[in-house]
Design a protein around this nucleic acid. Structure first.
Lengths: 342, 342
DNA sequence: TTGAAAGCGCTAACAA
DNA sequence: TTGTTAGCGCTTTCAA
C-alpha cells in the first residue's frame, strides 16, 4: 500500500550520530536533553520527513490517546453539538475521538463496544440506546478499569460518572408552565422509559400535576420513538379524543413541531386551544409558528464537560469520586404556550 | 492505568502447548491450520479473555483499519447525515472513523491533517474549510500515497476522487424555477467563493439569468458565512434597496429561513412579493411558513458513497481512475416560491 | 500442518 | 546529559 520507506528515530540517530533514545527524548521535549541537541533533532526530523509511529508508541506505552464515543444517533442537532463539544476538548488535550452510533439497537451498541475495546481506547463516552436494559456488554471494559462516562442517557452505577441535566426538574418546569398558563388536561409524549431522560421527565410531569392536585391519567401519556411521524400520529389520536387536552408537553422538539403542524392543519389554535412545550431547543423550535416553548439543553457544553471530566480522570486529576454532574437547563418561553397576557 | 495483565497469544500458546505462530494463525482462520486446532485456540482465547492487540498488529502490518474524516463543522443536519452514512459503511467494512472539524479554519484543518497522518489512517475523507486555498498541507499524505476522497466541498485534483452533486446545475435549477415563477430581479446569497459548492451555484445562477436574457447584476449577489445572522442581515439590506428584488436564491436553508423571517416581519409577502429558494432540504425547510422550496441533497448517501469508494480503493477494488462521482440532486418545490397557480 | 525466529518502531529502566 | 538494551504483542518468512 504505502510504498515509501518510513523514517524512524534510528535513521535520525544515525544521521546525527547520537542514540535513538536521545532522539526519542528530544522529540518530545524531555527535560534533561540539551537545548541545542533538541534543536538539531527537531531540524533533522523535519528535514527527513519523520512521522512518529503511534502504533509503536502506543504498544510500548499501553495507551492510545483515543477516546471512544457511542451515541444512539448522530443526526440530530443536539447530538452534533455534543460531539462538537467533545471534539473540541479532546483535540485540545491531544486525544482523538472514535465515534460510532448504536442506531438505538443494543446489538449495535454491543458491537461498537467490542470494537472500541479492541481498539484499546483510553476511555469511553456513552449515551445509551433506547433498547439497552443491562450493562453486561461493558463488563470487559469495567474489568480492565477503562473509565466510562455516561452522558445524557445515563444509568446509575457506583463507579461511573454521569453528565446529565435534571430531567425531572425540567419535566416539572415544562408541565408546571403549562398548568400556570391555565391548562387542566395536559398530554405528555415520551420516549423509551428505559432511559432516564424520558422516565425522569415523566416523573417531573407527574409531580407538577400532583402539586396542582390534578389526577394523573395514564391515557394522556404516549410513548413512542419521538420521530416526526410519531408526533403526527399522536396529534391525530388527540384529535379523535372525546375530551381534547388543552396542553401538550413532548420530550423533544421534533415531536412537538410535528404535533403543531398536524393540529394547526386540523384547525386547532395554538396556544389558545392547545398550548405546547417541547424539549431540546432545537433550531426548528424558533422556526415553527407559533415559536415553540422548550427546554434549553446545552449540547456542546454537555460534550465539553463529559470529555474534560474523562480526560481529567485519565490524567488522575479526577476530582475524587464524583458521581453525577448536572448541567443547568432552562425553560425558554415562546408563543406556543403563552395564553395569559398578564 | 490498566492494572489487569493482558492475555497474549503467548499465554494461549503455553496453555495449549503449541507455538504462538499457530495461535496467531488459528485466531484469524488462516487456511492450513487443522480445524480442531483452530477450535481449541478459539475456545482457549475465549476462556482466557484474550483481546487482540491492535497496536502490535498494526505496527507489524503497517495499516490501521482507520479512516480519518475532516469536515468544516459537525453541527448541521447535512453534515450529521453525511457522517452517519460514512459510519455505517465504514463499520460494516471493519473500519473505524476518526472525525475532526476544521471549524472553517485552515489552521485547524492543517492540525487535523497532521494528527490523522500521525495516527496513520489508511485513508482520508475531506470536506474543505471555507478558508482553504491551497493543498500544501496534504503533501505528506500524497507523498505517502494515502488515498484521499474529497466530498461536497472538493477541489479538482488529478489523482483524487471527489463526491459531489452538480452544484452548477442545482444553482441553475433553483434560479430557473424562480424565473419561471415570474421573478425578474433575483438576489443570490452565497458562501465563500473559494469553495466549489458556492462558486458553482453562482455559475448556475448566472447561467439561468443569461438564458432568460437578464443582465447579471453583481449588486444582487451577497456573499457571507450563510449563518442565521447573515441571513437576517441580508434581508435588512434588501429592505433598504431602492428597487427591491422579487426573488431570492440562497445557498443554504438556514440563510433562507432567516431571510423569510426577517422579511415577513417587515410585512413582505412570501412568495407574492419575494419568492425564495434555499438549498439543502434541511428539516427547517419543512417547518418555516411558507414551507421552503429547496434543493434536496442526500447527505447520508453522499457519506456512504464517499466511504465505500475509499474503502474499495483500499481493497484495490477501485473502479479504475474515476475522478468525480456525481450524486443526483432534486428541486423540491414548496410554497415559498410558487406564484403561478397554473 | 506447525514451529523458530526476526523484527515492526518506540520507550524507559538502568547505566555511564 | 546521553547511551545500552530489553521488550511491548504480533505477523510472517523460512524451515521442518
Amino acid at each position: 500500500m504505502n510504498s515509501t520507506k518510513e523514517v524512524t528515530i534510528y535513521d535520525i540517530a544515525k544521521v546525527l550520530n547520537i542514540s535513538p533514545a536521545t532522539v526519542s527524548r528530544g522529540l518530545k521535549d524531555h527535560p534533561g536533553i540539551r537545548k541545542d541537541t533538541k534543536k538539531k533533532i527537531h531540524n533533522a526530523a523535519q528535514k527527513m520527513g519523520y512521522q512518529q509511529n503511534t502504533f509503536a508508541s502506543n504498544l510500548r506505552r499501553k495507551n492510545s490517546k483515543t477516546i471512544g464515543v457511542i451515541v444512539p444517533r448522530l443526526d440530530s442537532y443536539f447530538m452534533s453539538s455534543v460531539i462538537a463539544g467533545m471534539e473540541k476538548v479532546a483535540n485540545g488535550a491531544g486525544y482523538n475521538l472514535i465515534i460510532s452510533q448504536s442506531q438505538e439497537f443494543v446489538k449495535k451498541e454491543i458491537a461498537s463496544t467490542t470494537t472500541l475495546f479492541n481498539s484499546r481506547v483510553d476511555g469511553l463516552l456513552i449515551s445509551l440506546s433506547s433498547e439497552t436494559k443491562n450493562l453486561d456488554h461493558f463488563d470487559a471494559i469495567f474489568r480492565k478499569k477503562i473509565p466510562i462516562i455516561f452522558f445524557d442517557r445515563v444509568i446509575e452505577l457506583p463507579n461511573c460518572t454521569s453528565v446529565v441535566i435534571n430531567n425531572e426538574r425540567a419535566g416539572y418546569d415544562a408541565t408546571r408552565h403549562l398548568l400556570d398558563q391555565g391548562c387542566k388536561r395536559v398530554v405528555h409524549v415520551s420516549g423509551s422509559l428505559n432511559r432516564n431522560v424520558y422516565a425522569d421527565r415523566l416523573k417531573g410531569y407527574k409531580k407538577a400535576l400532583s402539586e396542582k392536585r390534578i389526577a394523573f391519567d395514564p391515557k394522556l401519556v404516549f410513548t413512542n420513538n419521538l420521530s416526526d411521524q410519531s408526533g403526527a400520529e399522536v396529534a391525530r389520536q388527540i384529535l379523535k379524543m372525546n375530551k381534547m387536552p388543552d396542553g401538550i408537553f413532548t420530550a423533544n422538539d421534533t415531536t412537538a413541531v410535528a404535533c403543531i403542524r398536524e393540529l394547526k392543519q386540523a384547525g386547532v389554535k395554538i396556544p389558545q386551544d392547545i398550548a405546547i412545550v417541547g424539549f431540546n431547543n432545537d433550531p426548528i423550535s424558533r422556526v415553527i409558528e407559533p415559536h415553540l416553548t422548550t427546554i434549553h439543553y446545552p449540547g456542546e457544553e454537555m460534550g465539553e464537560v463529559a470529555a474534560s471530566t474523562l480526560i481529567n480522570g485519565l490524567k488522575n486529576l479526577s476530582s475524587g469520586n464524583l458521581n453525577t454532574m448536572i448541567i443547568r437547563h432552562e425553560l425558554i418561553i415562546r408563543q406556543s404556550s403563552v395564553r395569559k397576557t398578564s
